[in-house]
Design a protein around this nucleic acid. Sequence first.
DNA 1: GTCTCTCATGATCATCATTTGCATTTTAAC
DNA 2: GTTAAAATGCAAATGATGATCATGAGAGAC
Lengths: 143, 143
Amino acid sequence: MQMMIMRDEVGPAWRWTRQRKVIVAALQGRTDHPTAEELYHQLKATEAQVSLATVYRNLRALVREGKLRELKGPGPDRFDPDTSPHYHFRCSRCGRVFDVETRYREELNRVDLGPGFQVLGHELVFWGLCPDCKRGKEGEWQG
Amino acid sequence: MQMMIMRDEVGPAWRWTRQRKVIVAALQGRTDHPTAEELYHQLKATEAQVSLATVYRNLRALVREGKLRELKGPGPDRFDPDTSPHYHFRCSRCGRVFDVETRYREELNRVDLGPGFQVLGHELVFWGLCPDCKRGKEGEWQG
DNA sequence: GTCTCTCATGATCATCATTTGCATTTTAAC
DNA sequence: GTTAAAATGCAAATGATGATCATGAGAGAC
C-alpha cells in the first residue's frame, strides 16, 4: 500500500525530484523507524544515490509539513512515516523503536493541565526490553 | 526544602567536592528544568566557578545513579532534580518544560504491550503553548 | 596537621549528529 | 528550448557532548 505524499501550497514551490521520490519510497517501505543515516546507507546501496545532507533536508522538510513524525531520544533522531496517532516502545538495549497501541489516546488528548496551558498534543513512549533483547539477555547488542 | 543527595556505595568512592555541592544546590534551587549550559552560566556568575565539562560530568553521573532525571527533546538535554514519578509539558514556543500531574500513571505502568515485551517505564510529554507564550502570541520568543 | 592515595577538575581536543554555504544541476512553467 | 526558482552535492561549520590528561583536592591513616 503505497501512500502518496501530496503537499498543500505553503512556502516555496515543491519540486518532486528524483531524490525525494526515492527517500519517501524507502522510508515508507519500512516500519522500523530508521535514522537518517540508516536510510542513507540503504539508498547508497541502490543505483539511486542520494547525499546524506539531502536525506536530512528532505526528512526535516517532510516533518515540517506534518508528513512524517520525528522521534527524539537517546541517539540520532528516528523517522516515522506513519503520522496517525499511535505510541512507541523503545528498547533500552538495542535502541529499536516499535509501534504500540493503547486505549488512552482519547483521554490524554483531553487532559486539562490548568489555566493558561494550551495543549496541542502529547507523546507517550514506553521503554524496556524488546522480545529479542529479553530473550538474549547475555548476548550481544543488536543494532 | 533542601533535599540531601546521598550515594549508595557502587563504583569508585564518591567525593563531595565543592563543585558538586554547588551544582546540586543550583539545580535544586530551580524548578524549570535547566540545561547544562544554563546551569553553567548561572554558576559562572557566582564566585563559585565551575567548568562546563564538570557540570556535564556531574549531571550525567547523578543521572546514572538515579538522582536526577534527564529530559530529551528538541534542543539540549534538560535536567530535573525531581525523580518522583511525574510528567512534563514542553512549550513549543519557548522550549521551557513544566511539571504536570495526571491520574494515568498507575494505569500506564501496567500496560501490556504484548508477549515478549518487558516494559520498565514510560515517559509522557505534552506539548503546546505555555501561559506566557499563549498570551504574547505575536511577541518575542522568551528564552 | 600532614601523608598519601585516589578521584575529580579544568582545559582542551575529539566526536557525533546535524545544518549551512555555495557553486552547480534540475525542475516546472512558458 | 529558455529561464528562473528551487534542490542537490560536497565540504566546511555548528552545537552538544564525551574523552584525555596533567594538575589539584577530598578523606582516611598516621
